[in-house]
Computed example of a mutant assay.
Amino acid sequence: MKVVRTLVAAGGDNAIDLLSKHVPELSKGRLKDAMSKGAVLLSGKPQKRLRRAQTALQAGQQLQLHYDDDLLQRQCADAVLISDQQQYSVWFKPAGMLSQGNEWGDHLSLMRFAEQHFAAKRQVFLLHRLDREASGLVLLAHTKTAAAALSKLIAEHKISKQYHIRVKGQLSDSLLQQGDIGLPLDGKPCLTRFNLLQYDAEQQQSWLSIALITGRKHQIRRHFEAAGHPVMGDPQYGKGNKDAAGLALQAVSLTFTCPLQRKAVSFNLPPSLLLFSGMA
């Protein structure tokens, strides 16, 4: 069931009563669950998620409900804190978890998971995204100063990100020697560099190490589909690459010079979380 509704409060309304009155097809229990999972937005500058059912509303305030029973019932594995640097932290985002929520909720998002982990005692700023189907390292900031400094590094391409992917087929010698794909995407130049980690002759699949020189949307997935070697388990790009294990794309390391500590840092996924066991 999907329900999308915009409601305007009269004087003296509280959130759950307003929702219950105007959305009779959903029980109060379901509405409270939707609120707790971030599916109710309160108008204002900025707009925010309203989670507390008994919140008193001022006349004229608007609530937006985006209820999707299927989405609200979904679950995924927990994120894992890899390194806490106080002003920023590095997390393992599992496959199936969003980097951040949307109007339909945020209970399956890394940002919400981090907020709850720190018991809302720290701000959480998302600095970059990782596709929902992918897993791996994501950097979060906890102060505006850290967010600005680290965002500047990202914009200047000064954070080195390494990925592992498993693709369909065996890459030709000429493609391996070339070692990069420079196909423009969305009318913009971009470059993906790679090298072979291992070829599985039995499965006819190749493990590759990837370095993104640019960061266009779905760049790795689109580049390797165009090269004739789609990423295994990709639900959107490629043919003949279905895999019940899911998308074989993982962000495995982040390396940069920390602008706060003024020293080189490197964060790597522990062997227990790596998809490519050959690196364990």
Results as ranks from 00 to 15, higher is better:
residue 160 S to T: 14
residue 142 H to Y: 07
residue 240 G to L: 09
residue 150 L to A: 09
residue 34 A to P: 02
residue 44 G to W: 01
residue 104 W to S: 07
residue 157 H to M: 11
residue 155 A to N: 12
residue 135 S to V: 11
residue 26 L to H: 01
residue 60 G to P: 12
residue 229 H to E: 10
residue 39 A to M: 03
residue 55 T to Q: 13
residue 259 P to T: 15
residue 126 L to M: 06
residue 254 L to H: 01
residue 85 Q to N: 12
residue 110 L to D: 09
residue 20 S to A: 10
residue 210 I to V: 09
residue 149 A to M: 10
residue 264 A to P: 07
residue 212 L to D: 00
residue 26 L to Q: 04
residue 66 H to L: 12
residue 230 P to D: 01
residue 89 S to Y: 00
residue 3 V to C: 11
residue 225 E to D: 15
residue 69 D to N: 05
residue 228 G to L: 01
residue 200 D to W: 09
residue 149 A to G: 01
residue 237 Y to Q: 02
residue 95 A to C: 08
residue 234 D to K: 04
residue 256 F to W: 06
residue 135 S to Q: 07
residue 265 V to Y: 10
residue 94 P to A: 01
residue 42 L to F: 05
residue 69 D to P: 00
residue 269 L to T: 11
residue 72 L to N: 06
residue 153 L to M: 12
residue 100 Q to A: 07
residue 255 T to R: 06
residue 234 D to G: 02
residue 242 K to P: 01
residue 174 S to E: 15
residue 277 S to E: 14
residue 186 D to R: 08
residue 164 H to M: 04
residue 146 A to K: 05
residue 119 A to G: 00
residue 74 R to S: 13
residue 138 V to G: 02
residue 100 Q to I: 13
residue 226 A to C: 05
residue 135 S to C: 12
residue 269 L to A: 04
residue 217 K to S: 12
residue 90 V to K: 00
residue 227 A to S: 10
residue 24 P to F: 03
residue 32 K to F: 04
residue 12 G to Q: 11
residue 57 L to G: 03
residue 16 I to A: 00
residue 241 N to C: 06
residue 278 G to H: 08
residue 265 V to S: 07
residue 139 L to G: 02
residue 79 A to K: 07
residue 2 K to L: 10
residue 29 G to E: 13
residue 192 T to V: 02
residue 181 I to Y: 09
residue 256 F to M: 04
residue 80 V to D: 04
residue 138 V to D: 01
residue 261 Q to N: 06
residue 273 L to Y: 00
residue 101 G to R: 08
residue 213 I to Q: 09
residue 164 H to I: 02
residue 31 L to K: 00
residue 125 F to E: 07
residue 212 L to P: 00
